[in-house]
Computed example of a mutant assay.
Amino acid sequence: MPRKLTDERRDLVTAIADFCRREQRVKGEPHDQVVYEKMAALGWLGIAVPEAYGGAGLGMTDLCLFLEETAYGLAPISGFGTTIIAAAAYEKFGTEEQKRVVLEGVVKGRVEAISMSEPGAGSDVSALTCRADRVDGGWRINGQKTWCSNAHFADHVLLIARSSQEESRHRSLTQFMVPTNADGLQIKGIDTMGGREVNDLYFTDCFLPDSAVVGTVGNAWTQLMAGLNLERMILAALMLGVARRAFDDTLTYVRQREQFGRPIGSFQALKHRIADMATELECARLLLDDVAATIDAAPDQVFPREASMVKLKCTELAKHVALEGMQMMGGYGYATEYGMEALLRSAVVSTVYGGTSEIQRDIIGKTYGL
């Protein structure tokens, strides 16, 4: 069904689609800085950045439209997701200098990263062990972080480290702004199905001045909770775009591919699967649009149930549609030439990062008193 958009939003979607058709990358690295900076020049990367820092100052609905359309259009801008998550933390809790550096950098096409996971701590954030010890004039960081997306081409890493040994493990975490060229920080890539996307970070007596603290010492957990809406909506919007792309590519294939004298899409076994996927895509889109509008109406409120629902729905749907697409395309779905396998790789990992599907279900269940 047609999406009900204002003229301004419709124009934005059309412009993004036209841009992506010109700059589309089926193969290659997930982030192309040249393309990224072209988008910056058009003002798109600052879509959710306050006007005071050079951005457009728009809300969740506009941000989700941008994310969905760039994902659908295969734009090689993988650095944007982590950038906008980190930027929002600096906007809410950072000093004026931190805001100026990061937010103005976002508008110009700079990339930011955020690092929370460790080899022994993923879903359980309270188990973090990377240490931030007070020293004269600042902090000394020691420990390892892992699965840090985009750190290898980011300007800074928003680090969550343990700054004290208080009994309350959630009340002893602090956020730090760490330049990626800081002495004592080693960034080492992790080989994945998607290529070089994530990294191990090794901190060895990495000194950070007091000015590197983001927000309040010992308050990182509360600060992280304030950003849950944004992180989950970003991932949901990206994966809705991936799901739409996988669906459209599959539909094109089953309309054109003939076996036994007719298009394979005319066979009931495939026709009904297409119908089911189309219906689920509409449901996911309506959910995303509704939650985005809800957040825009109350931007300072956290919606744990709704944000987890939309992240769960869109990521699991993207995985399902890409798997179905690969099955319907047969050997061609497995071939790198056709791109379905790349969509599947993107979709599968989305059900893990940003809080696994199991964690999202647990959060949703807790909101019902379970």
Score class of each variant (00 low, 15 high):
M239H: 15
Q165P: 01
G137C: 12
Q98N: 10
M233K: 01
R9I: 05
P50F: 04
H272V: 13
C314Q: 09
E69V: 00
A292F: 04
E197N: 02
G369M: 08
R134T: 07
G261I: 03
R345L: 07
E324Y: 12
I77N: 01
M329I: 01
H320W: 10
D200C: 03
M309Y: 14
R305A: 10
G122A: 12
S350A: 15
T356F: 10
Y90W: 14
D62G: 06
S168C: 08
E306W: 00
G59M: 05
F93C: 13
N142G: 05
A40D: 09
V348N: 12
S346L: 13
L58Y: 08
L286N: 14
H31P: 00
L286F: 04
Q24N: 09
T83C: 03
Q98A: 08
V26T: 09
S168A: 13
V107I: 07
F247A: 07
L65Q: 11
Y36I: 02
Q360Y: 11
A298R: 11
K366N: 11
L45N: 15
V178A: 05
E258L: 07
G54L: 00
T294C: 12
S350D: 06
A154C: 08
A41H: 09
R100D: 15
D296M: 01
P304H: 10
S266N: 04
I160N: 14
T95P: 14
L173P: 04
V352C: 07
K27M: 12
E282L: 10
G55W: 03
V254Q: 04
I141K: 06
Q268V: 05
E231G: 15
L344D: 04
E258I: 09
T95N: 13
M1Y: 10
T82G: 07
A292G: 08
Y368H: 15
K145Y: 06
Y36L: 12
K27P: 00
Q24D: 06
L103M: 09
D62C: 10
T192W: 04
M1K: 09
A293M: 04
I190A: 02
Q24C: 09
T252E: 15
Q256A: 15
E112I: 02
T315M: 11
S357R: 13
G81R: 12
A48S: 14
G81I: 13
